[in-house]
């Protein structure tokens, strides 16, 4: 199979994308556009507009037959290109076949427990990743999907069946359109279905004031987690680091103080829900 997908980056060893040491593969492309997205350059694919080329201080970018070409060996990883891109993209994403990705994973295999497919939104590439996941599983590794929750369950079922589980975002409920630009409650339905077949590794919510229905989101998640004591809920405090200037200008004042954030943990405790982690 020579089909390729665009990959934003591969992190050989990650300790925050599920249990143990894992390789994380970040695909390029996401159908949402969340206000606090701190890697918004993964959202769109590059339009080859060329704007970033002249800003690169290391001459790592160039035009070749109307395509922006990235020369990794020249790159100083200053991320200027990402900063100046007006289209939430990066010139540094690379196309990989399944075999290319497997070759990388093989190198990391002895030291990792599994691979986490992240993004971007991995379910956008469900077919490709189903094949990849089959190959990864053959190595005796686990496969997790880090997803925003908005996917067609039936159409995605081959991927769902082959992987070990999901790290699932429930970003908001009532305010999801304002926060992420999508008008749908599919994420909650998918959470229920995934819980029903024992495929949820962890649920995550990023907390921010003002732009989301914090309490409601927490309640909705916790209600659904009742009866699944093995599934932890991770609350993550939104931060300004990694945000673009425009994002920061818009949501900067809505970033919670640590006290405000911790209060949500207290709330969960009062509610009698204790299996949560706070990521300050």
């Amino acid at each position: 199979m020579n089909q390729k997908i665009l990959v934003n980056q591969i992190i050989p060893f990650s300790n925050v994308d599920g249990e143990g040491n894992r390789c994380s593969i970040f695909v390029q492309g996401c159908q949402l556009n969340c206000l606090y997205c701190h890697n918004s350059e993964t959202i769109q694919t590059c339009r080859n507009c060329g704007i970033c080329i002249e800003h690169c201080p290391s001459h790592a970018l160039s035009f070749q037959s109307n395509l922006v070409i990235y020369e990794e060996s020249q790159c100083s990883h200053c991320d200027t290109c990402i900063m100046v891109c007006p289209y939430q993209s990066t010139p540094k994403a690379k196309a990989y076949t399944q075999d290319d990705l497997m070759a990388r994973i093989e190198i990391y295999r002895p030291y990792i427990r599994g691979v986490t497919l992240s993004g971007g939104e991995p379910t956008l590439y469900a077919d490709f990743l189903t094949g990849l996941a089959q190959k990864i599983k053959k190595l005796g590794l686990t496969v997790y999907i880090d997803s925003n929750g908005f996917f067609d369950f039936e159409a995605t079922s081959p991927l769902i069946n082959i992987v070990d589980g999901f790290l699932l975002d429930i970003k908001a409920v009532d305010n999801i359109e304002h926060l992420c630009g999508i008008k749908s409650q599919l994420h909650l339905k998918n959470l229920e279905k995934l819980l029903g077949i024992n495929k949820v590794i962890e649920v995550r919510t990023v907390l921010l004031n003002k732009h989301m229905d914090q309490m409601n989101t927490l309640n909705q998640v916790v209600d659904r987690l009742e009866g699944y004591p093995q599934v932890p809920y991770r609350l993550i405090r939104a931060h300004v680091t990694g945000l673009k200037k425009v994002q920061e200008a818009y949501i900067g004042e809505a970033i919670m103080t640590e006290e405000e954030f911790v209060a949500y943990g207290d709330y969960l405790n009062q509610k009698g829900f204790h299996n949560f982690k706070l990521q300050r």
């Binding site: 060893f13 300790n15 143990g20 040491n21 894992r22 002895p110 030291y111 427990r113």
Partner: peptide, 20 residues
Amino acid sequence: QTYLDHLDALLDIIQGAFSE
């Protein structure tokens, strides 16, 4: 510092090294 919160990840690396 992040490995302090993810000791199992570091143990994976150590065990992997031994297996190699």
